[in-house]
Design a protein around this nucleic acid. Structure first.
Length: 573
DNA sequence: GCCGTTTTCGGCCCGACTGTTTTCAGTCG
């Protein structure tokens, strides 16, 4: 039996929710939540760590007790403490706390006073007008509960970063045009460039009397105004995205930007450092007693607590604070480091543009090289190429290269990895390529061991260069296929192969956590657009964002090198 | 339940908005 880290994290989160409803010590509840997060962020499976005899209590936020509980879950697939808890607290109450406006205390009251233990009972009680009769509840609360229950039909979801970017750009422009407004910036997980965004936080500084709050709630994409105050308001857009606006004075701009960029876990950790220095950090500044000692810029905030500036993408409390203290923060890769793109398609298979058009788009981006990687025959729906068609394309690339100045097209292929681990094209033609991008498109769910073996067997082929979109996940659509990433990465290092960070906004595969793991293992990563059109080359920057979240530096990125240097790395001895 | 330049006990981040309240609890981020 295999237990995934995500399942363990879920159990701890569930424990936290049950404890909260029981009215347990809030710090104990937080301990479970923190542990869930640690477990969720781990690149390696806890099951493997246990079988290798590692001491889990050395992990942050995991102590002796929770290490024991993890071992129990891995061992038995169950957690006795959870089962005990479930006997005392009806499971349906946890669902109730997920409704906006209902927390543990109110859910407890609903249960104790009205005997409500699930969503259906809640709906009935609200419709019958029983909820308004409880002390601490009123008619408005009852109404909000009914609204929340009807909204719940349209399932809560997180939005792709690229989709939120369009929405954020428009909203920011709208607010910038309001009189008296000085700064407008989107903060939160959007600024940290998380692959998905739950809600958008916008920060504004403005002169006194600016009508920015009114303009914010009147914006034509607004569907519902959830709250409106003088410094903070919340709306839901027609798209379903929730947007918060915070207004602060210019003198607090840096403090507020820092505060609202988060992450929460990062902020809490830095605040704890501040407390030890007898300082207080809030969204208005850093305070020594009543005196503000920092606040205008983020750099001031960091300086006040004795830390160097930490990039937003790193602010997840995943070791960046310790690295900052030791002055060992990575110098993160940026889009300007990228010298070329190693994965794109043309009209020969499922792309939209010709070789020439792709080449000229790459040149416009300032690239030195562009690898043409059309599909191989196995992926028939894309009109995948056989050996003969590939030969013709290689000749066309030769002809075009002889005319091109400042850009080199690389001869390449997105070769399918067959179910037996063989590559989809004959070695005779693969040997004439500059590189291959090898991928699984068929048989994504064959199981962990088989899938891992399949990939490693493919890497045994000396013409295998880069493993494309390694897990095959599609965000919000298809789960990552189950592979032993650690073994795959080890195999790649041993054989001189590489892994791709596919920059398609719905792929972002490798993800940030796996990028960090690759870096720690000394494995270089190709950040590639997988563009299917000339315009599509531009999405490579979303891959750079995720690489930055995974602590990647230019040194760790294959295509942050000139062609002569890259060519040496691609050659397998 | 975790953690330690306050180290095995006693802390554990901080403020805004809402609704139900006569001064604040609950929720949220």
């Amino acid at each position: 039996m295999t237990v995934r880290n995500a399942e363990i994290a879920e159990i701890f989160d569930h424990m936290a929710a049950l404890l909260e409803i029981q009215g347990a010590n809030p710090f104990r509840i937080r301990a479970y939540r923190n542990a869930a997060r640690t477990v969720d962020d781990l690149p390696r499976s806890l099951e493997a760590m246990i079988s290798e005899g590692e001491d889990l209590s050395k992990l942050p936020d995991i102590g002796k007790d929770l290490a024991g509980k993890i071992a129990e879950i891995v061992d038995t697939g169950r957690l006795e403490a959870l089962e005990e808890m479930e006997k005392q607290v009806p499971a349906g109450l946890v669902d109730l706390t997920r409704l906006p406006g209902l927390g543990a205390k109110r859910v407890r009251a609903l249960h104790d006073e009205l005997g409500i233990s699930g969503l259906d009972e809640l709906r009935r009680a609200a419709k019958a007008g029983h909820i308004r009769e409880l002390s601490g509840f009123g008619a408005k609360t009852e109404q909000r509960i009914l609204e929340a229950l009807s909204r719940r039909a349209q399932e809560e979801r997180r939005f792709l970063l690229s989709d939120v970017e369009d929405i954020a750009d428009r909203y920011v422009d709208h607010l910038k045009a309001v009189s008296g407004v000085r700064e407008v910036v989107a903060a939160g997980s959007y600024r940290r460039r998380k692959e998905t965004v739950g809600d958008l936080d916008i920060l504004v500084t403005c002169k006194k009397g600016s009508p920015v709050m009114e303009r914010f709630v009147e914006y034509d994409e607004v569907d519902t105004v959830l709250s409106q105050g003088t410094t903070r308001s919340t709306v839901v857009l027609h798209s379903g995205l929730q947007v918060d606006l915070r207004v602060v004075a210019q003198v607090s701009y840096g403090a507020a930007l820092y505060y609202f960029t988060g992450s929460k876990a990062h902020n809490v950790a830095v605040r704890t450092i501040a407390v030890k220095k007898k300082l207080k950090i809030n969204e208005y500044g850093v305070f020594k007693g009543k005196r503000r000692v920092a606040g205008k810029t983020e750099r001031e905030i960091f300086r006040a607590v004795g830390l160097p500036y930490i990039e937003p993408e790193l602010r997840e409390n995943r070791g960046e604070i310790e690295a900052a203290r030791k002055r060992r923060l990575p110098r993160l890769v940026s889009s300007s480091d990228i010298r070329g793109d190693l994965h794109c398609h043309t009209e020969a298979t499922d792309g939209r543009n010709s070789l020439e058009e792709m080449a000229s788009a790459a040149k416009a981006l300032g690239y030195e090289y562009l690898a043409i990687t059309d599909h191989s025959k196995r992926v028939a729906v894309t009109h995948g190429m056989d050996e003969a068609r590939l030969r013709k394309q290689l000749e066309a690339i030769d002809r075009l290269n002889s005319r091109l100045r400042g850009l080199r097209l690389l001869k390449a292929m997105e070769v399918d990895i067959l179910e037996n681990g063989k590559l989809d094209l004959a070695d005779g033609v693969l040997k004439d390529l500059d590189l291959t991008v090898c991928a699984i498109h068929i048989g994504l769910g064959i199981g962990r061991d088989k899938q891992t073996e399949r990939i490693i067997r493919a890497m045994d082929n000396p013409h295998f260069t880069i493993l494309a979109h390694p897990t095959g996940r599609l965000i919000n659509q298809r789960a990552a296929s189950d592979i032993d990433m650690e073994r795959v990465m080890e195999a790649a290092v041993e054989r001189g192969c590489y892994l791709e960070l596919n920059a398609q906004p719905e792929r972002l595969d490798l993800d940030d956590v796996h990028c960090r793991m690759a870096k720690d293992m000394g494995l270089k990563v190709a950040i590639s657009s997988d563009a299917h059109s000339a315009d599509g080359l531009g999405c490579l920057r979303f891959g750079v964002d995720q690489g930055r979240r995974g602590w990647l530096e230019a040194e760790d990125v294959l295509n942050a090198r000139s062609w002569p240097k890259l060519r040496r790395l691609l050659a397998r001895s």
